[in-house]
Each structure stands twice: as structure tokens, then as C-alpha cells.
Amino acid sequence: MLPELFFGYYAAMIVFLSVLVITRKNPVHSVMWMLLLFFHIAGLYLFLNAEFIAAIQVIVYAGAILVLFLFVVLLLNLREELQTAKFIRSWPAGLLISGGIIVAIISALRSFVLAPQGMHTIEFIKRETHTKALGTILYTEYLFPFEIASLVLLVAIIGAIVLAKKKTRS
């Protein structure tokens, strides 16, 4: 009973907060609700025995990405943005498209069969600790994708500097 209640609280809060994120007029409020949303998602990850993912959710998403968002929102002057209408006029079309997507996903779920169980049981993770087990896979089986991820981050660093730099005419 208790796990269902716990999941119910997190699910209700996540849905409610994501609705708040996309319906606030002021982007600063949206960012603040998004911070709360990310903490709730991290709580859900803890509930699923993924403590390392929960930690990087808080550190990277709530700590780095949201601060970046907040900086940009505060840098831009959005006074006149608050006067215009929130949604486009044809928002029912958007509702129809997103409703179609959710109907497709949920009707596909009814014939969903889980694949055979893997080797990372709760006992295995308890013995190895979660971070060590994750690191072992990451640095052996997924070494090349890991290197590519570092390349992606390098491109992001250089790209962000080049794009945001002020053009100087010499």
C-alpha cells in the first residue's frame, strides 16, 4: 500500500508541476516550477533504486541546466513578452496532436511484454553498490559512447562561446 501511495504522490506532483511549467506566463516562474519538477523526478529515481541517476539529475539538471536557463531569462528583457497572449490561437490543434500521441502510446502498452530479466538484480547491486556497477558497464561496454559524449560536450562548449560572442568589426 505504501509504495503505491508514494508513487501516487510523486506522479501527481510531476504531472501538476509539468503543467505549471508550460502554462506560466513569466519564464522565471516556469524555471522555478521546473526546479521543483526535477527534484520530484529525482525522488522517483531513488524510488526505483537508481541513486546515481538521482544524484546526477539533481547536480546536472537542477544545478547546471536550470541555472543556465535562469541566467538567460534574467539577462533578456522580457517586459513586452508578458503582455502578449500565452498560447497560440490554434491551441486545440496542439491538444489534438499531443492527445493522439498519448492514445497511441497507451494503446501500445496493452500488448507490451517485458524482455527476460538481466543480471543486475537487487542483490547484485547491494553487493556491488550502484555506482560501481554502473561505472563498470560504462567504462567497459560503453567506452566508445562515453568518449563520444566527451566530444559532444567539447563541441557544446566551443559552440556556445562562438554563438554568444559579440561580433566585433575590425
Binding site: I56, V72, G118, M119, T121, L134
Partner: peptide, 29 residues
């Protein structure tokens, strides 16, 4: 599924999201 490869994928998605946020916000500026 008791398989940790899904969490590796989440790790990469968070990496790409960080890169995307940096580039996208630079474009917005």
C-alpha cells in the same frame, strides 16, 4: 528488467541535454 544498460542511456541523455541547453541558450541570446 534488472538490467542497468537503461541507466547508461539516461546518463548519455543527460549529457546531450546539457550540451543542447548550452547551445540553445547561446542561440537564444
Amino acid at each position: 528488467m534488472q538490467d542497468m544498460r537503461g541507466q547508461i542511456l539516461v546518463f548519455f541523455i543527460i549529457t546531450v541535454a546539457a550540451a543542447e541547453a548550452a547551445i540553445g541558450l547561446a542561440i537564444i541570446i
